[in-house]
Design a protein around this nucleic acid. Structure first.
Lengths: 364, 364
DNA sequence: ACCAAGATAGTAAGCGCTTTCTATCGCAGG
DNA sequence: CCTGCGATAGAAAGCGCTTACTATCTTGGT
């Protein structure tokens, strides 16, 4: 049915081997022959059979990208950046690699499942984005799976999550065998710390914290940064009482804020785990008749595109998602050398905007 | 290096054929044999070689999804929905198909390029999302390519774009050969019409329109709906003078609004081609010291998640992106029967919120 | 008991491409 | 002129899996 290499070879009056060589350009072929082959390819509208060549060459040009939720710009931006790294920027050259974006929905099982699927496709590389689940069992399973893939030649890159904790078992001397996957991590803790310091310096003392899902590295790191800033300022106890966990979505922000208000009707600021949650927080505050930032300051995290358009514009922490994703993509393709130590940390920058202001009645 | 079918077969004491049959479950295998094979698979941690099976079976389990921009929730939501259709909902069953999300950036060339890449992978199906570019040349090229893919067994589904216009050439009797691709289209024109009628009924007469990129079906349909409503109300001329084209992004909305204001400082409403553009419009108006909706009403389109959180909440037209994407996904997998005529139109619903109100001084 | 129809398992022929190993051809060096 | 080497092209052996086509072994019917 479909046009095959052999058809092209026949048409060009050469052997299949020659056509393959022309197409891959990894073997000397006389100019005349080359153009004859190329013409035949054109005329027949030949398109390589990917699976066949992947099988024969034992390599694939698929790169997997695991995200929690493509519909969330946080991941969408990273995915898009990874993909952009596949195309030889600017040059009209067609990318050889294709990115496969997989939605894990944040579920460990689905994460493993997709890794299996990618392993089956013999993916050239996989990029894991977003925070990791901190369940020991899952971490072990994940490490095992990633190791197998790495052994099979798949490049593994982590983007937006910390490096995998070292294996606890005594399998081989530490660091032996396949090296740990390269990681591009975010300075979540540092960003959160600076954010809280900003609020402290404005005079806030009673701040509610809307944390993300429990047992996630991102959630933990951001919370740790926040608590560290509080501790450094000599504040304590607030811990726990003014922290509520929830999903990274708007309704969690809404509900969480109502809960915080219930716990402390006089709080002067709400720090949300991310911008989307912050939007929900704003909505809840407005519905309660509280003005932002006059009555309550609100802050987000990530600085997604819509943060600047919120009303008031959201004070948040900017994470260069695109840059990080692009870098992860290049690392996956081997276009860029891995950073020393295998871990690159991208800085999180405080973006002060209109949603944060001094509290009505400064600390008593 | 890697474990192969043969290894499993040897371990289980059966032939490779039997292992294949157990794994594919498409041929009777005795219970005892099956479990023996399954055990061997477990023990060896065997993972099928995708390319090899794709080659042998002449089918792949890759489904391509073309989007303009994954980072844009409009596409992210559809992509996520398509992907969700791959997993047998609820059941913990692992999806057999994997979605490959490709970013075309709205460029016709990249669209074709990715289709070639997908054709090379012998994708089981492809879903084209978003509006189509209305360049005759590109349409012809696109139709040709899609036809070839369809002939090769790839299911083609359009989501959010109108069916392909029929071929103009005289190749065979009309409708012969491969049927036109199935399409899930949005009622952009109807939605836009209802939106403009809403504004008209509030008393607006001088409305600026921020259209999307020229030569795109989505842009044209939305604009047509708007103009139709104006015409029905006996308004004319405004056409053109109060319409500016731009990209589907925030800055186009910002700049476009300034341009509209320059053309008519007294306009009472700005209709944006989509929610993101509307956000930019709001920002521009605010920067000009105009209040929304007291001085100028603003409307969006799509009802993306953030629309309700804008301040004021955006009056917009809701398009059930997730439902549409999921349906497209099911059609692509053949899980759902195609609609009669091959075209399903999803309704666009007017969402009246706080950003639209009667103009300060009603029509004179 | 004997033969046919199931039910299972094995054999082997590819799927379309890559790649090593050979085979030619042409020409410089001696 | 003959040897030899560089530059090209072809032959053919798989890559790991699917799937007719066979082969074998049970059963049921009578």
């Amino acid at each position: 049915m479909a046009v095959t290499l052999a058809d092209v070879a026949a048409r060009a009056g050469v052997s299949a081997a020659t056509v393959s060589r022309v197409l891959n350009g990894n073997y000397p072929v006389a100019g005349a022959t080359r153009s004859r082959v190329l013409r035949a390819v054109e005329e027949l509208e030949y398109v390589v059979n990917g699976p066949a060549s992947a099988l024969a060459a034992a390599t694939s040009d698929l790169v997997g990208v695991l995200v929690n939720d493509v519909a969330d710009p946080f991941f969408g931006i990273m995915a898009s950046a990874v993909q952009s790294a596949m195309s030889p920027e600017g040059t009209g050259t067609a990318p050889r690699k294709m990115a496969i974006v997989c939605n894990t929905g944040g579920s460990p099982e689905r994460e493993l499942m997709y890794l299996t699927l990618l392993q089956r496709q013999r993916a050239a590389a996989v990029v894991l984005t977003g925070g990791a689940v901190e369940d020991p069992e899952h971490i072990a399973a994940l490490r095992a799976r990633l190791r197998r893939m790495a052994d099979a030649g798949t490049t593994v890159v982590l983007c937006g999550r910390p490096p995998l904790p070292p294996a606890g078992d005594g399998t081989g001397p530490d660091g032996a065998g396949t090296p740990a996957p390269v990681a591009v991590t975010f300075d979540n803790s540092g960003g959160a710390k600076r954010l809280t310091q900003h609020l402290l310096s404005l005079g806030h003392r009673r701040m509610g914290y809307l944390a993300g899902p429990v047992a996630r590295t991102t959630t933990r790191h951001r919370l740790e940064g926040h608590l560290a800033a509080l501790a450094a300022a000599g504040l304590k106890e607030d811990t726990g009482r003014l922290t509520v966990y929830g999903a990274y979505d708007r309704s969690s922000g809404y509900d969480g804020t109502l809960e915080l208000l219930r716990r402390d009707p006089d709080l002067t600021a709400v720090l949300a785990a991310n911008d989307t949650v912050a939007l929900g927080a704003c909505a809840a505050l407005r519905d309660r008749g509280l003005r932002i930032p006059e009555d309550v300051s609100v802050t987000g995290f990530d600085d997604l595109p819509f943060a600047v358009d919120a009303a008031p514009a959201l004070t948040t922490v900017r994470i260069p998602l695109y840059e990080a994703g692009a870098r992860a993509g290049r690392l996956a393709l081997g276009t860029e050398d891995p950073p020393p130590g295998g871990v690159a940390t991208v800085r999180a920058e405080l973006m002060v905007r209109a949603s944060s202001a001094p509290p009505r009645s400064p600390a008593r």
